[in-house]
Design a protein around this nucleic acid. Structure first.
Lengths: 134, 134
DNA sequence: TCTGCTATATGACTGACACATATAGTATAA
DNA sequence: TTATACTATATGTGTCAGTCATATAGCAGA
């Protein structure tokens, strides 16, 4: 049910070139937060990402690669779950180091939001005064 | 790798690895906005960027490349200024197309800020309730 | 002359991301 | 039984912003 392959280009879609304006590495803190809430496997994380971030179909390739990279860095650990139906699932769990990393990310994101606000403030200041001027 | 254990963050430095958590292509709307305020050459834009975005020394390589790319795309136009002392300066001026692009960027950035808010809300919701639980 | 500031520019590399594709297990309907 | 759809993990490749290093040249003052 995770249709990552259809891209509808309606008006709410970005005018600027794709990829621009997004936060670099934003999938990383989301994965860590979702794992902090509850251990999960990749496919489930993909679905939860699609809801919370309203990102319609996060790229599976990026997701699985990010998880494996996290494991290499000790931010998560994994085990195979062969219970239930369907193929075996690799279940991820966040580590203490991963939690620390998540908190650092939160600080980072607050800082990024301030930068955005600073831009928007200056943008509006300029174009409001430009509006007054005519 | 983000060695958060060894080095206490000296407030201005980022905790997570460099480049992460920043907005992709964020220099682009800044340049367009600064040029919308007033035509300028690269070096001056670099200094104004350092003030407004409090980014201490934006990378000159990226800045000049971005400006030339903008010119190729018709977002800005340039002319040489040989007046005054020092080396000749290439003075950039924003075009109508550049203004349009800037406005599209502003929409994009508002959307990005909403995404950040959504993350921070969920982050705080989780860790506040986790605090209550102990 | 040597240093330092102004000013523009290129080359090499990295990391996040997009897009395509491969793989296999399971369930269900034709 | 075959076909298909869904679940689940994974790799390969290319793009692009960002980082760092370096090259260049004009000009000014010690």
């Amino acid at each position: 049910m995770c249709n990552s392959h259809h891209r509808e280009q309606d008006e709410s879609e970005e005018h600027c070139c794709p990829g621009r304006g997004r936060v670099r590495g934003f999938m990383q803190p989301w994965l860590l937060l979702l794992l902090a809430q509850k251990p999960a496997h990749g496919y489930e994380l993909m679905e939860r990402l699609g809801q919370d971030d309203e990102t319609p179909g996060a790229d599976p390739g990026l997701l699985y690669r990010t998880l494996r990279q996290f494991e290499q860095e000790g931010l998560v650990r994994s085990s195979w779950d062969t219970e239930g139906s369907g193929p075996a699932r690799r279940v991820y769990e966040i580590t203490d180091e991963g939690l620390e990393y998540l908190h650092a990310w939160a600080v980072n994101i607050r800082r990024t939001r301030e930068r955005l606000d600073r831009f928007l403030a200056e943008y509006q200041a300029h174009f409001q005064s430009a509006e007054e001027g005519r």
